[in-house]
């Protein structure tokens, strides 16, 4: 064999050994002791690093979970109950199932309802637009339509509807992490639970302007007339600063408010399509749509009232 080859092999081997020894000692010297459960917990988590739990990422959350004496107050909104159950198993703890949260955009200022009053020509970001002025419509509370929430969503659950100019939440994809809600400079996105069969009743407006002003800017605005508050049998609706709000924890989805609202600002979702009912009797099909149990409860409340 050529001596060049031999020398090469010898040198390479020597270098390899020296490096291996150095690496071994360095690894020993800088070794970080870590709870092995952290890796196990992290493996259970979705790995989206969305920050919905309030931690810097899944690894950080796993550290918190392992360190916490009681994990009941910590929750991964993305993985939901299944993941928390797994984590609890790893840590030998118990968790109570929590309801799934979804984002809801509380504005119905579509291009038709809320005509544009000027033409925004800056960087297409709600944050920039909100810092600049009251917006390109008459309403200074509603959606700015630049899609900061869409950009913030890591799960592709929000998209802009080109026809309305408003974001639409795909509830099947929404994990309730809240990234959109904190990205919205107008704070019109709310996280809430859904009723049975994913039903919900929402005031689709965030305007705190007086009735006339709000109405002038947007046909679908809540004018703070408080009719819904009066009609609600469960006291779920409060009107503050000319704006009605339905507490989703109290709402029993009776949909009475939907029929009562004079501007149509209250909407119901995922209720069965009503048959083409005559406009004269809109209340009847609504009544039918409500589950029997709720109906009974409504009746009971009405009697006591």
């Amino acid at each position: 064999m050529d001596s060049t080859i031999l020398t090469t092999i010898a040198i390479l081997t020597l270098v390899g050994i020296v490096v291996a020894v150095v690496l071994y000692f360095v690894a020993q010297k800088f070794k970080v002791e870590e709870d092995e459960r952290i890796d196990k917990v992290e493996a259970c988590l979705p790995g989206a690093n969305c920050g919905g739990c309030g931690s810097a990422g899944c690894r950080d959350f796993a550290c918190k979970l392992v360190a916490a004496p009681e994990i009941g107050s910590l929750f991964c909104p993305v993985g939901g109950n299944d993941v928390m159950q797994k984590v609890a198993q790893v840590l030998g703890q118990e968790v109570v199932a929590q309801k799934k949260m979804v984002a809801v955009v509380r504005c119905n200022g579509t291009c038709e309802n809320r005509p544009k009053t000027n033409d925004y020509d800056g960087y297409a970001s709600c944050k920039v637009k909100a810092a600049l002025y009251s917006g390109d419509t008459g309403c200074r509370w509603g959606c700015l339509g630049c899609g900061d929430c869409v950009a913030a969503c890591k799960f592709g659950a929000i998209s802009m509807d080109a026809a309305t100019g408003l974001p639409v939440v795909d509830e099947s994809k929404c994990t309730g992490c809240g990234a959109c809600a904190s990205a919205c400079p107008r704070t019109i996105i709310e996280l809430r639970t859904l009723g049975p069969k994913d039903r919900k009743v929402v005031v689709l407006c965030s305007s705190k302007d007086k009735g006339a002003v709000a109405r002038k800017a947007c046909k679908a605005a809540c004018i703070g007339c408080a009719k819904c508050q009066k009609v609600c049998p469960f006291g779920a609706i409060t009107v503050e600063n000319n704006l009605a709000y339905i507490d989703f924890n109290l709402c029993k989805l009776c949909t009475k408010c939907v029929a009562e609202c004079p501007t149509g600002a209250i909407h119901k979702f995922n209720f069965p399509e009503k048959p083409a009912a005559p406009a004269a009797a809109p209340a009847a099909p609504v009544e039918k749509a409500a589950p029997a149990a709720v109906k009974a409860e409504v009746k009971a409340k009405e009697e006591t009232a």
Binding site: K116, T117, N118, D119, Y120, D121, G122, Y123, V128, L132, Y133, D136
Partner: peptide, 9 residues
């Protein structure tokens, strides 16, 4: 006249 344009400086 079309709508006025608004943008940051």
């Amino acid at each position: 006249m079309s709508k006025t344009i608004v943008s940051p400086a």
